[in-house]
Design a protein around this nucleic acid. Structure first.
Lengths: 203, 203
DNA sequence: GACAGCATACCAACTGGTTGGTATTGTTCC
DNA sequence: GGAACAATACCAACCAGTTGGTATGCTGTC
């Protein structure tokens, strides 16, 4: 009962890590098996194909991220804009770890697979969109309070934030370090502050 | 004389296209050969390894992009901020084509190779940074004119613009269409307008 | 201008190793 | 005893790179 779940979870954890380091195509099933300390026989008992593993890993990653952000301290703040800015700062704080630890599995995989593996593309799309959607409530509330007449939608801003994060990760990979990403998130924060008239707030 | 250059260019053009569609690891040397209408013998005459092809393709891509942007009509505008906003709008206009036509080879390749192929990572890093640097002059001039006291640097804003573009491409791939990317660039434009007090300009 | 000498461009067939996936046989837990 | 899980052994397809060779120039010399 536990072993079954544990083995599958171990495969998914390893897959997440290896996919984020080498990408989908370059990671072999053996890589994942070795990382999880299992053999191929076990692997193909849990997953029909490598593609199925990728789809499951995308879901696994999304669940992990969901747990991380929904319980983060900034979530307790009263003001919706504070929560939104808290999200960005929390993202910045995470940048301290190693590259494969803070980058996004979904963005990494969808780049290679969007044309050749529709199932993976769909999984990545759904989970990115769902994560972006976790921001829309706060954005909508903040908009009502601080920028009620603005023309943009809460949904599009949520996606823009995701895009900036994904792009920041790419630059961090290119530079082999998180410093650029931190600077990018600084600009993102400034954009949000300008959008919501952060300076004039509460005066 | 002509044949030699033409074959190599054809290999590079094909590589650019296939890499952008399937990523680095998933494209085979045979893919590139078939696309270029050549054989492996010819391929390995021009490139020692597949990795060397990737590095050359990155350079090829950067040269192509350089030609495209340096001759674009918006470059002729007198005001530096107009040129900067022109760049963003030009990027939006390009989104009309198919996905492998407007996405960035450098961002795509570096995601998969940053940890396993240092030479490719370095090439991508250099060409992304160089492209970002083509914006810094305009940004610095615009800053002097419209936001002289701002704390951010021209260089970091250029990189932020690149990050946003890269992220917009990822979302476009996930959604299998450029609409999201267009919305993202709308936000990016708004950020630039807010940063440079675009509304109050020339008053 | 013709011919030797040489480098470049290209090709078809092959190789050794890898990879996703399968078949079969235990093993463990209820 | 049977269902879930895991290990070993194996395979056919694939892939980066090699080999050995041909064709096409280009250069200098007489």
């Amino acid at each position: 009962m536990q072993t079954q779940h544990e083995s599958k979870t171990r495969l998914l954890d390893t897959a997440m890590q290896v996919f984020r380091t080498k990408g989908y195509a370059a990671t072999t099933v053996d890589d994942v098996c070795a990382g999880a300390g299992l053999t191929k026989g076990s692997f193909f008992h849990h997953f029909k194909t490598k593609e199925e593993l990728a789809v499951a890993a995308a879901r696994h990653f999304a669940e992990m991220a969901d747990g991380l952000f929904s319980t983060a301290p900034y979530r307790a703040r009263a003001d919706p804009l504070d929560r939104l800015l808290g999200y960005v700062e929390f993202r910045r704080a995470i940048l301290q770890g190693k590259l494969p630890e803070f980058t996004c599995l979904l963005g990494t995989m969808v780049q290679e697979t969007y044309d050749s593996h529709p199932a993976i593309r769909r999984a990545c799309d759904r989970h990115i969109s769902e994560h972006a959607a976790t921001l829309t409530d706060d954005i909508a509330q903040a908009k009502r309070l601080y920028a009620p007449r603005a023309k943009w939608t809460a949904e599009s801003l949520g996606l823009y934030i995701q895009a900036t994060l994904q792009g920041a990760f790419i630059l961090a990979k290119a530079r082999h370090g998180p410093a650029v990403a931190d600077e990018c998130l600084g600009h993102l924060r400034r954009y949000l502050e300008l959008l919501f008239n952060h300076n004039k707030r509460k005066e």
